[in-house]
């Protein structure tokens, strides 16, 4: 579904991501892990078009997408969430999701001046789709609440709901379990599994919680100082000496 070849990003003299190769298969669940500052979020920013890669190619469903803008990535079917929640703070929960439906809204700005019958029909469809999303993510009872009034875990859920409202084929989750207690993150694991099956979405996620990643992902890519050091299934990654070294340091002889 997505092929990444030799993805590199430099910030001045710093090489934040260095030659990442990744093949994400349709329907898979891939984890991206690494110590702090390993370049995971930079990598995500490139995969979602927020920043352009310095080198390398990203191919999504057979088409080159690197160099396109973030909104075009989303319109092609790559949605993402953020490590630090970025909701539309002063808007209602429902409006947050409706904005994600915007590029599919099916009418022009000109029509919106008059609120004619076509507008009304399309707008009803948007509301229906948004409410359906909220229902799936158990947020429908708070639909008219201002988004910042939600509890932390709900805000995280809303961010995923909003991303799913863009009808993505691939979902990128940047530390979805950050700041959650064990019960909440267990619920989130179930939710991600559920979303993947229900919408047939491919999921790539960054996470520090090892139990979370090992329990959820089929394939894991490990980055250290921007360079990929290991790729494989959870059992392989746990046994990989390079990974253990990156996380815990090397056992000095003598």
């Amino acid at each position: 579904m997505m092929q990444v070849k030799h993805l590199t990003r430099r910030f001045g003299g710093l090489v934040a991501v260095n030659g990442v190769d990744l093949e994400v298969e349709e329907g898979s669940l891939v984890g991206l892990i690494g110590p702090n500052g390993a370049g995971k979020t930079t990598c995500f920013n490139m995969l979602s078009g927020v920043i352009a890669p310095s080198e390398g190619a990203i191919t999504f469903q057979g088409k080159r997408v690197d160099g396109k803008k973030a909104y075009q990535f989303t319109q092609l079917g790559i949605a993402r969430t953020f490590q630090n929640i970025r909701l539309f703070k002063s808007l209602s929960v429902l409006d947050n999701v409706k904005i994600a439906c915007h590029f599919n809204c099916g009418y022009s700005m000109f029509r919106s001046f008059f609120h004619g019958p076509v507008f009304q029909r399309k707008e009803d469809e948007i509301t229906e789709h948004a409410m359906e999303m909220l229902k799936i993510f158990k947020l429908d009872h708070d639909a008219h609440e201002i988004s910042t009034n939600l509890a932390y875990g709900e805000q995280r859920r809303l961010e995923i709901a909003r991303a799913m409202a863009t009808r993505p084929k691939m979902l990128l989750l940047d530390e979805p379990a950050a700041g959650m207690n064990p019960t909440e993150s267990a619920e989130l694991m179930d939710l991600i599994r559920f979303v993947r099956e229900k919408f047939a979405t491919t999921v790539v996620l960054i996470e520090h919680d090892m139990k979370f990643v090992m329990g959820l992902c089929q394939q894991i890519l490990v980055l250290d100082y921007g360079t990929p050091i290991a790729y494989g299934n959870p059992a392989e990654i746990q046994a990989n000496p390079k990974v253990i070294e990156a996380y815990l340091g090397k056992d000095e002889e003598g």
Partner: peptide, 21 residues
Amino acid sequence: SSPGRAIISVREDELAAEVMG
């Protein structure tokens, strides 16, 4: 309307708006 919400989303959070398409 939807374009109107798009305009407001730019005020709320430009990056999030962009990532929402």
